[in-house]
């Protein structure tokens, strides 16, 4: 893939920032508005897919090397599990929202109001974004040897 014409390249280089930011917004406000980790992660991955279509695979690989994406994928899943285990340590049961109950009560409908839920959303967003990017990237290389990691089925919070 060599990339597309200059018009597409210019526009997508502007748009990609907005798409990426929108993804982050969806993740961070997941506990208040529709959206959350999965939807935001998909949008994050989409911003990279846009780059891949416009500039070609090599450009994206330079920006986000595959091993790094794979690490981020694992890191997201690990963080999610860590939050669950912290719930066991501080709250006495897996997935207890210990931050909300003990440390950060907060008013409903404020940004800081839901304890561990935004953190889990963040972890899921990282996981989904990285793994969806990996899936699409590896599917786009047909000739090279690849092994898709389809462990995207992390349960939504």
């Amino acid at each position: 893939m060599k990339g597309m014409t200059i018009i597409v390249k210019t526009i997508s280089s502007w748009v990609k920032v907005l798409v990426f930011l929108f993804g982050i917004y969806i993740i961070l406000f997941g506990h208040l508005t529709p959206g959350g980790g999965f939807a935001g992660g998909v949008i994050l991955a989409a911003s990279y897919v846009l780059l891949m279509l416009a500039f070609g695979r090599e450009f994206v690989e330079k920006n986000l090397p595959l091993p790094l994406a794979s690490r981020l994928d694992c890191l997201g899943a690990f963080l999610f599990a860590l939050i669950a285990i912290l719930g066991l340590v501080f709250g006495g049961s897996f997935f207890v929202n210990f931050l909300y109950q003990k440390y950060l009560p907060g008013q409903p409908l404020n940004l800081i109001s839901a304890g561990t839920i935004p953190l889990s959303n963040l972890a899921i967003g990282l996981k989904v974004g990285a793994s969806l990017f990996l899936v699409i990237f590896t599917l786009s290389i047909c000739c090279k040897d690849f092994k898709t990691d389809t462990s995207t089925h992390k349960k939504e919070e």
Binding site: P67, R71, A77, A81, A84, L88, F94
Partner: peptide, 21 residues
């Protein structure tokens, strides 16, 4: 034993393994 440990132990290990490379 907290029952989710039966699910959490293999799950966490599964996601830790690729980090070793």
């Amino acid at each position: 034993i907290p029952l989710p440990a039966f699910v959490a132990i293999p799950l966490v290990t599964a996601f830790l393994l690729p980090i070793f490379g």
